[in-house]
Amino acid sequence: MRWGVALNVRDDMSESLRKAEIADRGGIDNVWVTDFPAIRYAPVVAAAIAERTKSCRIGVGLVSPLLYPSTQIVQFMSTLVDSYGARFDLLLGPGDKLVLASIGVSCSSKLMVDKTTHALDEIKQGLSEAGHTCSVLLGAQGPKMIKASLKADGVLLNYADLEMAEWALNQIKNEVRAGFQLGLFPPTYVGDCQDIITNQSISYSAAMVAIGLSRVVSNSFGLLDRIQAARILMKEHGQINMDMVNSLGSEILQRFAFCGTSEQLRNYMKTLEKIGFTSIVFGPPQGIRKRGVEILVKAKSTYGMD
């Protein structure tokens, strides 16, 4: 099982580098640098991390092909590989519709999926023509994107709940080829998590994923009505707040994040392996604090020893 951590989207460069060094020295396999809506331009942060680390792979993404032409994505991945070696992976996904609209990038949900899958083909081809072998993964949640990921080198599923994760995996499990990376990218908080609602950072992250859940999936798991009120609030306010968190309630939020102790994490990871997952990226808020990265390093160092 490969362990990855997503750095905080608000980190300045020195904080990102410090955390990447801790992860690298501590044996974390992948450090992921999110692009927009992060303020820093991910490929440049990735270059700086490559200068300061030795072993970890560096993930660029999530990157939205709606914001950049495929040629530019191929260019920045190629330049990174040419300059710093074959240590880079790319995670593609449409991105958040609302935040993209704030910078003038607007299109329908259907078109977002179509453009992303089309870009996946172009980018894979472009990288192949340039002679680069970096993995291109697709970030997915809904059935269309999950299916589309079969053309990629792997998928990172935006689920935490084991039942949902297994459901998503079953959509493609029988069709994946050898070497295909099956991964999860859930909001994560490893620590004391008695009441998820009182921990704002994890509850906000979980609520964002829950509200963004596709209608098809919401319906399949009987969650449509229970999420609807939070969706309406999101449309009104434009950004996440406690009203939405309270509207969803802890039972729902728990399904959209891993929130638990190191011991619970160990059990969670073992179950994921049994289901068939080969990698996990611990999403925010785990990478917000330096301590969060250190906790993951410690958890990984003891994982598999029992």
Partner: peptide, 16 residues
């Protein structure tokens, strides 16, 4: 435009 190295990564590498 669209040729060779990506401008921002090249600029970063040059600074580094």
């Amino acid at each position: 435009i669209a040729l060779g190295q990506e401008i921002f990564v090249l600029t970063a590498a040059t600074l580094l």
